[in-house]
């Protein structure tokens, strides 16, 4: 199995919203689509899922043009949606049916994911253990009776009910509290273990770094950076020096003409041009008998790369 996007172009009238996007997922895992708001991530996702038409390019699944209706795919949309007035069970069964999941199997999977996502009390409110002592048998819950986080969990269930081989998660963790974020993260890990193909879009760079091997950064429809995240970082080199000393080192920084990115109580974040420059600066401090508490020379974070790349493009324009 593989997913390949070749020279994808989408226009609205004369406005190009996705410009010549290409990437390939040859192995199961998580591919990240990053970008500022309005960069074209959601449009790209909708095109891949067959919800939007496109003007040029190719989308290949298993080296054949993708027919989203014939690929078992799951989708967690950025803008969550459930029918507010229909019961949760009715909606879940309907969405499973749309994915051609037999009713009994759908019920089994609903039970599994309800337990996994800790929403059993909403989906099975009439279950004995969910009824409080002396209380009447409750009516089935509707979506508008749930909190935003719980609605998100039901949405996640909808995306996973067909046991899809290809899953698109658009901002999966937005709006979740830390506890529920961990629940979602554990599910994403489970998907990776089960060799699923996942495309994830998120503004939470730490989450992307946690799960994604390959990335593409989009800005106003254009790809500004893409590839293996580790290689990208390696190419940038260890140019971020984090240093904390007992004494003030501002005079040393000035004398060496270093570029301070940030100064916090935890120390300085200094951008260096090479590892040698960092080494020389460290030697200077040692010679000056400065007590060093922390010294770290690291690759840039995805957040830094993102800001730098998108910022560069904006400056150019």
């Amino acid at each position: 199995m593989s997913l390949e996007i070749k020279n994808l172009v989408k226009k609205y009238g004369d406005k190009v919203v996705v410009n010549n996007l290409s990437f390939k997922m040859e192995e199961p895992g998580v591919y990240a689509l990053l970008g500022t708001n309005g960069a074209g991530k959601t449009t790209t996702i909708r095109i891949i899922l067959g919800m939007l038409s496109y003007n040029e390019g190719e989308i290949l699944w298993d080296e054949k043009p993708i027919d989203p209706l014939n690929v078992n795919l799951g989708y967690l949309a950025e803008e969550r949606g459930l029918y507010p007035k229909y019961t949760l069970m009715d909606q879940l069964l309907y969405f499973a049916k749309l994915k051609k999941v037999p009713k009994n199997l759908a019920k089994e999977r609903i039970a599994y994911w309800a337990k996994r996502l800790e929403v059993e009390e909403y989906i099975y409110p009439d279950k004995k253990e969910n009824i409080k002592k002396g209380a009447k048998k409750p009516k089935p819950k509707t979506a508008d009776q749930l909190s935003k986080g719980n609605q998100q969990k039901i949405q996640m269930m909808c995306a996973l009910l067909s046991d899809p081989e290809f899953i698109v998660l658009d901002e999966p963790l937005s709006g979740l509290d830390p506890v529920n974020s961990d629940v979602f993260k554990s599910i994403i890990r489970e998907l990776i273990e089960n060799k699923k193909y996942v495309i994830m879009s998120s503004h939470q760079m730490a989450t992307i770094e946690e799960f994604c091997k390959d990335i593409a950064i989009l800005d106003r429809g254009n790809v500004v950076l893409q590839g293996d995240l580790n290689v990208i970082k390696k190419n940038y080199g260890r140019v971020n020096m984090m240093i904390k000393c007992e004494d003030d080192i501002e005079s040393y920084i000035d004398s060496c003409g270093m570029n301070v990115v940030n100064k916090t109580p935890d120390g300085y974040h200094i951008k260096v041009t090479s590892e040698d420059e960092a080494k020389k600066f460290l030697e200077t401090l040692v010679k000056g008998n400065v007590t060093i508490i922390k010294y770290e020379l690291r690759e840039p974070s995805l957040h830094e790369i993102f800001v730098e790349k998108v910022g560069e493009t904006h400056e150019e324009q």
């Binding site: 909708r46 899922l49 067959g50 919800m51 989203p68 209706l69 795919l73 989708y75 949309a77 803008e79 969550r80 949606g81 459930l82 029918y83 507010p84 969405f95 749309l98 994915k99 949405q155 909808c158 995306a159």
Partner: peptide, 17 residues
């Protein structure tokens, strides 16, 4: 308009034209 306003349509359109 309900499906559009609640965004349910996004999910449905992955399975139905």
């Amino acid at each position: 308009v309900t499906e559009k306003a609640t965004k349910v349509i996004e999910y449905i359109m992955t399975s139905v034209k």
